[in-house]
Design a protein around this nucleic acid. Structure first.
Lengths: 164, 164
DNA sequence: CATCGATACATGCAAACGCATGTAATTAGT
DNA sequence: ACTAATTACATGCGTTTGCATGTATCGATG
């Protein structure tokens, strides 16, 4: 889904060598498998009974903030890490602030920018959920892949992220 | 996001050997990298100007149907392939039918079930979009990974899907 | 330094989503 | 075969999403 070509699909480029054609098919198959693995795992993680009153997307935001600098991230930086439109993230930040999980502040150097950083409460909540979540994640990943394969996967996905 | 543990996170299992601890960290890192690669690629694909009046999720549904049998899929089967709640998929099928892209019908063998299958119009639309999309997908994947790495990725992701 | 395009967010609004729940059909248990 | 539990889907409802657009600030250019 969102990818891959059907049995009969052929990209609308002009005719190419058989080798290149095969690569197009293979590349799409790779994306398809990546996407489906993600769907499959995400389903399992969503079904976990650990999210309390956070949606997974809200957890993602809190988590992304733990990976940034202590001082927080600009909304636009945060947006790059999250699969959410800019207006949606903007409003989510507003909601999270109302709940006391993040703090928003104007950047003194750039009047357009809004800085978002975790409150103690937000960091605490992320940690509490993150600990449980990490256990499930590890369980699923270790069940399917061995140590070397995990390393391989990290390498491949890192390349995909960097070179896209 | 949705995964991985922060620098300080430690799963709340009882103490384990250093080796297992490292595996938990590694497994989470692998999920994180998989997830981020997907976010990154999905952003690029969403930005493509080829979706006409379909949302990506709607395209996913049409695409999933092309991979099933000619006679279509039950809603619950379709739901397994799509990251969407059952009620949302139910209503999306209704909308797609109104637009003449799919056909819904009662399964004579199981009165509870609703069968969904592509109309010619739906199949045609998927193909038209799919061709263009496949080109972008291939371009992105080939840019980051070579032939053998694509094969590796397929193998790893297939295992993840199967053994989860 | 005035102007213009680009960038960073916010907001109005209709569409879509998920949760809780309802209904009907099937399967399992006794 | 009757009842209970399960499965498959639909629907009410409040929330969230994305798109289009608005506003303010920054940066580049002449």
């Amino acid at each position: 889904m969102t990818a891959y070509l059907s049995e009969e699909d052929t990209p609308d480029t002009r005719p190419q060598s058989a080798g290149t054609q095969r690569n197009i098919r293979l590349a799409n198959e790779a994306w398809e498998s990546l996407f489906q693995a993600q769907v499959s795992l995400m389903r399992i993680f969503t079904a976990e009974n650990i999210w309390q009153d956070l949606s997974i997307r809200e957890y993602d935001v809190l988590y992304a903030l733990t990976k940034g600098p202590e001082t927080g991230l600009r909304l636009c930086e945060l947006n790059e890490k999250i699969l959410l439109s800019q207006p949606s993230l903007s409003r989510m930040a507003e909601r999270l602030e109302k709940r006391g999980l993040v703090r928003r502040s104007q950047d003194p150097l750039d009047g357009r920018s809004v800085n978002v950083c975790l409150t103690d409460k937000g960091r605490e909540l992320q940690r509490s959920i993150g600990r449980k979540h990490a256990t499930t994640v590890a369980s699923q990943m270790d069940q399917a892949l061995d140590h070397d394969q995990l390393l391989q996967l990290i390498e491949l996905c890192s390349q995909l992220r960097e070179k896209s």
